[in-house]
Each structure stands twice: as structure tokens, then as C-alpha cells.
Amino acid sequence: MKTFLTHLLIAGLLLTGGAAIATDVADISLLKYPEPAGEKCVEPAEKMRREHMDLIQHQRDETMHNGVRGITAKHSLKGCIDCHVGYDDQDKAVSINAEGQFCQSCHNYAAVSIDCFSCHRTTPDGENPMRKSAMTNPHQ
């Protein structure tokens, strides 16, 4: 049943601007959004681009119904936000669904609406563990 929704989403994606992504991935690099804080994503970027919604949705049910949280919740939305959130001049976290930010820039490009943030917060709650490591990262 749940996959039906996903298929609907994918159909929508293909019908709109999604076709462009499928054929020419380079286009996505034209999108502007903040650099992620971590060294690498939990999955290869290519996989994330195509399957992040399924991964997040699977994690959501695992967490909601089976109580799998924290370090064992590999594909948690919280993890996405901690790593991909951008910061403004005052060093304040910017909502990840704000214009020019990670989620919004690509979803806007693909013309797919996001329902996550009608309930989930859009910035790290309290101290961001990824931010800390990024700041102490000598490469930064």
C-alpha cells in the first residue's frame, strides 16, 4: 500500500522535471545549496538521489512502530538535517526547506512537494553534532 504512494510520487517526478534528472544528472550540480557538514553520506549520492524517499519512509516505520532510534536509525530524517542544514551570517541554522537550502532546492527543481516538514522541525534541535565535527575538521 505504502509503495503505491511512492510510485505516485515517482510518476509525478517523471511527468514533471524529473525526466531531466534521469537523463542528465549533471544538471543537478547547477543547483545551489549549502555544503554538507559530514565527510560522506550514509549511502552513495546516486542512490540517495533516487531512493532517499524510500529509505526515509522505511526508517520512519521502523522508528515509529518498532522504536528503532538513535545511532541504529541509519536513514533518519534527523540525520539528513544535521548534515545538510545551512547556517546564516549569524551562525544560525536555516530551515532546510527554505529557498536555496538542501531539500527545497532540489524538490523545487523536480517540482515535488515535501510533506515531512508539516510536522518535523527543519533545523537541528539544540546542538548539532555534525556541525561540531565540521568546525573542528581541518579540511574546512
Binding site: G67, V68, R69, G70, K78, I81, S118, C119, H120, R121, P124, D125
Partner: peptide
């Protein structure tokens, strides 16, 4: 809070602080 997503148009109640339990 990141452990307690809440949004307009849905119903909610005490969770027994399920995030702490977990």
C-alpha cells in the same frame, strides 16, 4: 522538538516519552 514531530491537522497525545524509553 526533533523527537516529537507535531503538525497542524493531525491528532496527538502523551507518548509516554517514547524517545526516552527507546
Amino acid at each position: 522538538r526533533d523527537h516529537a514531530p507535531r503538525g497542524k491537522g493531525t491528532v496527538e497525545s502523551c507518548t509516554f516519552c517514547v524517545h526516552k524509553v527507546d
